[in-house]
């Protein structure tokens, strides 16, 4: 059952991502990317990472995409101008780089699958227990990873300051 669900949600994510990078209009790209975020949220639910799935929808599909769409609309790109440019040009070396990556990493993955004990087999998977609830993740985040969590706040502060300074018209 989870296999079918994974194929549905994973396929949705992959197709949406492919469509997102091949659209000419950035708004269409952003909307397709929302589809990818929802597909990935489904994958996380299949993997029983419930809290991660919820945060994926809230933070990525909610906050980050709204920020993206806000900036795209603010820039006011004319669709007429986009139509004149025609479909996006995909340089062959770029496609080659992507294909080379998927071949090389797929090879490494096949190697890992062939190694006994790297990935759990069917009965080992049935025995795996992992609580992906908000309670368990909160206990881990504010226990073992408390220092990293606090450092993250400095990163966000830097992000805020950087965004304000970069978009200010003049620094006086």
């Amino acid at each position: 059952m989870t296999t079918v669900l994974f194929i549905v949600f994973g396929g949705m994510a992959l197709v949406s991502a492919l469509l997102a990078v091949t659209r000419q209009n950035p708004i269409a790209s952003a909307i397709w990317l929302v589809g990818m975020f929802f597909g990935l949220a489904g994958v996380y639910v299949v993997l029983e990472a419930y809290f991660v799935a919820a945060v994926q929808v809230l933070v990525y599909a909610g906050a980050i995409m709204v920020l993206f769409l806000f900036v795209i609309m603010l820039l006011d790109l004319r669709t007429k101008q986009l139509d004149e440019e025609g479909p996006p040009k995909m340089p062959i070396w770029g496609v080659l780089a992507a294909v080379l990556f998927i071949v090389a990493s797929g090879w490494a993955l096949m190697d890992a699958v062939g190694t006994p004990g790297f990935f759990p087999d069917a009965e080992e998977r049935a025995a795996l227990e992992l609580d992906g609830s908000a309670k368990a993740i909160g206990a881990d985040l504010f226990g073992r990873w408390l220092l990293a969590f606090e450092v993250t706040s400095i990163l966000l502060l830097g992000g805020i300051l950087g965004a304000v300074i970069l978009t200010k018209r003049r620094l006086t």
Partner: peptide, 26 residues
């Protein structure tokens, strides 16, 4: 429970990374 092979999920991650690489490169 999760009865699907987990290496498929890693494969999905690799494929998605490749798509992102395609976007950045092209």
């Amino acid at each position: 429970g999760v009865d699907m092979p987990l290496e498929w999920v890693v494969g999905l991650g690799l494929a998605l990374f490749s798509v992102g690489l395609l976007g950045v490169a092209c």
